[in-house]
């Protein structure tokens, strides 16, 4: 019996695809198995809402880190989303195709820069700037938010450019033919038509910002406490895991896995929201 090359290729690729899904499932399972029992034993509410993190005394409250993660993400979005969307609009509507073909790959290349490099720039340039101009230690919530805001630009720009590019030209022509200026056509029609894709890009970027670790460890200062100003040093959920995991044992180790469970859930929620937004058609 002859087995065709097509058949073999099909099963090989099927196996590869399945192993990708399987490894995702295994990771999820592993984290849940390690983390969930701790959460249940310690009490989910106590774990999430108290702010004492003293592992050696058995106190595991991650509220300050949740709050810090959320503030940093919100700050990053406040910086990254307007810049990214504006950049995408500029690239797709106001720049000749030839220029766009150079700039867009360049921006996508930004995504390939290791996050430790962003962190390095944050430590060397941004933190001193903040320290001398605004006060505080420099390594702070603000520094982390700015660095992350820049790091998410490629995600926002490249997905938004695709979304704007997918808007039929007929909408633009229709708007211009009614006496709209280019900017009015973009603002009142094109952005509305591309809205779901743009929202998806921002949510995906939020996922990246929540999950980013290395750059944040380098610039956020890593003090565990609930921040009262953007200039204070903070520690995020991701940084907490990365910093303490190597030395953790027993309950402490399980608590870090439980922190991972919280992160995992947050990111799953964000990604599902992004997918739902992308699937939703414009026209509402």
């Amino acid at each position: 019996m002859r087995i065709s090359g097509d058949k073999i290729a099909k099963y090989v690729f099927l196996a590869i695809a399945c192993s990708a899904i399987a490894s995702l499932l295994l990771i999820a399972l592993f984290i849940l198995l390690e983390g969930l029992p701790f959460i249940l034993r310690y009490g989910p509410w106590k774990f999430l809402s108290t702010s004492d993190w003293r592992p050696h005394e058995g106190a595991f409250g991650i509220a300050p880190m949740i709050i810090s993660s959320l503030w940093i993400t919100a700050g990053a979005m406040l910086i990254g989303a307007p810049l990214g969307v504006a950049g995408a609009v500029f690239l797709s509507e106001f720049v000749p195709k030839s220029v766009m073909c150079i700039i867009k790959p360049t921006i996508e290349l930004l995504a390939g820069i290791p996050s430790v490099v962003y962190g390095f720039i944050g430590v060397m340039v941004l933190a001193p700037l903040i320290r001398t101009n605004l006060g505080g230690p420099g390594l702070s919530l603000l520094a982390a938010a700015v660095i992350l805001g820049i790091m998410v630009l490629p995600t926002i720009i490249s997905i938004s450019v695709d979304a704007i590019g997918a808007v039929p030209n007929a909408f633009r022509e229709g708007a211009l033919a009614l006496g709209a200026t280019r900017w009015q056509a973009v603002r009142m029609v094109v952005l509305k038509a591309a809205r779901s894709g743009i929202i998806a890009s921002i949510i995906l970027a939020m996922g990246r910002a929540v999950g980013e670790t290395m750059a944040v460890i380098m610039v956020a200062g890593n003090t565990i406490r609930t921040p009262h100003s953007a200039l204070e040093p903070v520690r995020t959920l991701t940084a907490n895991i990365a910093i303490e995991m190597s030395a953790a044992t027993g309950m402490h180790r399980q608590a870090l896995f439980a922190t991972g469970v919280v992160l995992f859930v947050v990111i799953m929620i964000l990604n599902s929201l992004a997918m739902a937004a992308m699937r939703r058609k414009g026209g509402r």
């Binding site: 211009l176 033919a177 006496g179 509305k192």
Partner: peptide, 15 residues
């Protein structure tokens, strides 16, 4: 363009 308006080949209402 507000004085000389246009209707296109394919209906193109905005979303």
């Amino acid at each position: 363009r507000t004085r000389v308006g246009m209707v296109f080949q394919r209906p193109n209402p905005f979303p």
